[in-house]
């Protein structure tokens, strides 16, 4: 019920924007290579869907693998940082510094190193989704309540018990919020990787459409890559819904 009430205004707004867009293109007679009508874009989308499936598949695979790699490395590094002050002090600044290097600048180098296949895209997606995971997981693992720690200590809990029964559950809401960010970043990473050199994927499709000035196709590509990001985002949100039910209760109480 709540979901429907939240969705209706969003959908209505979207429809209004599309109608306005269609209307403007029609009134001002804007040429299609500059701004195509939404109706034309959607028609083209459904016509070329079967042709685009492989491209969508490749980009989805690259994003997904990059996302997995990024969160795996990010979580491991965060655990290491939390348990070793020395490593945190020596490595964490570099992890942050690496973040300031524009990912677009690294992508061509990775193409040189790893060729034209999906590997360099997976790496770009992994690098870009890695940072929010490290930062949030470190924050989450650190956020245990002093009194909760005392409680475990008073029962002579082992380090392992504290980690499994206190640190991990405490940090899960933080980790999931970083996963939601990372999920959409991973798609961006994959597309950026494809821009730098690829022969398939949505990024590749957008790029060649741009060279051919096929604006309708570009819009189709943009639309599909956003949909991909949104799908990843909601997939994570859905998993979170079942894995971290208490954080849902917290947020619904807060409303």
């Amino acid at each position: 019920m709540n979901l429907i009430r939240q969705t209706i205004p969003v959908v209505i707004f979207l429809i209004l924007v599309l109608i306005f867009w269609e209307f403007c293109v029609y009134i001002f007679n804007i040429p299609e290579y500059l701004l195509p009508k939404p109706s034309v874009i959607f028609t083209k989308l459904f016509q070329s869907l079967s042709f685009l499936y492989p491209h969508i598949g490749v980009t989805a695979l690259e994003s997904f693998l990059g996302f997995l790699l990024g969160i795996l490395l990010g979580t491991l590094l965060a655990i290491v940082f939390v348990h070793s002050k020395t490593l945190e002090l020596s490595v964490y600044p570099y992890a942050i510094a690496l973040k300031t290097v524009p990912i677009v600048a690294i992508a061509p180098l990775l193409i040189v190193w790893f060729g034209n296949g999906i590997l360099p895209k997976v790496i770009v997606a992994a690098i870009i989704s890695f940072f929010p995971v490290v930062v949030n997981t470190v924050k989450g693992l650190r956020s245990i309540d002093e009194e909760a720690f005392d409680l475990f200590d008073s029962l002579a809990a082992s380090k392992w018990q504290v980690f499994i029964k206190l640190r991990i559950p405490t940090s899960l809401p933080y980790i999931f919020s970083s996963l939601r960010i990372a999920s959409t970043l991973a798609v961006i990473g994959a597309i950026v990787g494809e821009f730098s050199g690829a022969d398939k994927g949505l990024g590749f499709f957008i790029l060649i459409s741009s060279h051919r000035l096929e604006t309708v196709d570009m819009f189709v590509g943009i639309l599909l890559s956003s949909l991909l990001g949104i799908t990843f985002f909601y997939a994570i949100a859905l998993i979170e819904h079942y894995v971290v039910p208490w954080s849902r209760i917290i947020s619904s109480e807060a409303e």
Partner: peptide, 19 residues
């Protein structure tokens, strides 16, 4: 004594695990 689990602590805040 802690390792013989002699203590029961009730803290000022309830410190319940929300999960």
């Amino acid at each position: 004594a802690k390792f013989s689990r002699m203590f029961g602590f009730a803290f000022q805040n309830p410190v319940l695990l929300p999960w």
